[in-house]
């Protein structure tokens, strides 16, 4: 699925009544399977861009298209279904559910249950695998072996691994990550960064990462910086140069 964003603009009404334009006619095209990094100063609109590209936020203007699906023309429910079927999400602060076991956290999206209504697009239920079995396999893949442990007793690095496994449950075509290593110490940041890139490669998924982490940026195929509302490519390596594919 190729991502095409055309003339996307997003602005917010500020508490003082003024309007803050965060994205100003952003244009972007990302080939399937690309590892795409977004950097930029704090408050420049990186998270906003991620929300726009994933259909969480509808831009005031512009078009976001994933393959044949035009997110900007879909209603909220359709965008929810699209995310469930095609997207995985990794947040800076993991945002796991402490009342659930690691397996429960990873398998949770399977309980949303709208993906199979998307018919042929349904991916979670397309496979005959039980969600908890798949969750267990994914936890093993991300290196969480002791699955009986409570999430709250895990280190930050381990929690982000669980979150990465959760993002993989639906076999997503695209994984969005918002500063996935920013809350981690250096060595687990390096591990988690490598893991994220690795699992995206294995899945053949597009990876869109907002980050300042130079190690992580170095593993991207493309890096763009956001400044004054527009996106500017800073690095473009030929596919395959950044890391093993």
């Amino acid at each position: 699925m190729t991502l095409t964003a055309t003339d996307c603009s997003s602005s917010f009404r500020q508490p003082d009544g003024s309007t803050l334009t965060v994205l100003d006619d952003v244009n972007l095209e990302v080939e399937p399977g690309t590892r795409f990094g977004i950097s930029g100063p704090s408050g420049s609109g990186k998270t906003t861009l991620l929300y726009v590209l994933s259909g969480i936020l509808r831009p005031q203007r512009g078009v976001v298209r994933w393959g044949a699906d035009e997110l900007t023309r879909m209603g909220e429910a359709a965008r929810d279904r699209w995310r469930l079927a095609y997207a995985g999400f990794v947040f800076q602060d993991f945002l796991l559910f402490p009342g659930m076991s690691p397996i429960g956290n990873v398998a949770l999206p399977a309980s949303f249950g709208a993906a199979d209504r998307a018919g042929s697009r349904g991916r979670i239920h397309a496979q005959r695998e039980r969600p908890r079995d798949r969750a267990a396999a994914l936890l093993e893949r991300v290196g969480i072996t002791d699955r009986g442990r409570a999430v709250s007793s895990m280190s930050r690095g381990e929690r982000q691994r669980v979150a990465i496994a959760r993002a993989l449950l639906s076999r997503p075509a695209v994984i969005f990550a918002d500063e996935p290593t920013a809350s981690l110490d250096r060595s687990s940041a390096a591990d988690v960064g490598r893991l994220l890139v690795g699992v995206a490669n294995e899945a053949g998924a597009t990876l869109i990462v907002v980050t300042h982490d130079p190690d992580l940026l170095a593993q991207m195929d493309r890096v763009a910086a956001i400044e004054a509302g527009s996106l500017r490519d800073t690095v473009a390596r030929p596919t395959g140069e950044g890391a093993d594919r």
């Binding site: 929810d80 279904r81 999206p109 949303f112 249950g113």
Partner: peptide, 16 residues
């Protein structure tokens, strides 16, 4: 609120 928003970001429908 933020927990529920995470559910939505992960693809949970509003009805859920």
């Amino acid at each position: 609120r933020s927990s529920l928003a995470v559910l939505r970001a992960l693809g949970a429908p509003r009805g859920y």
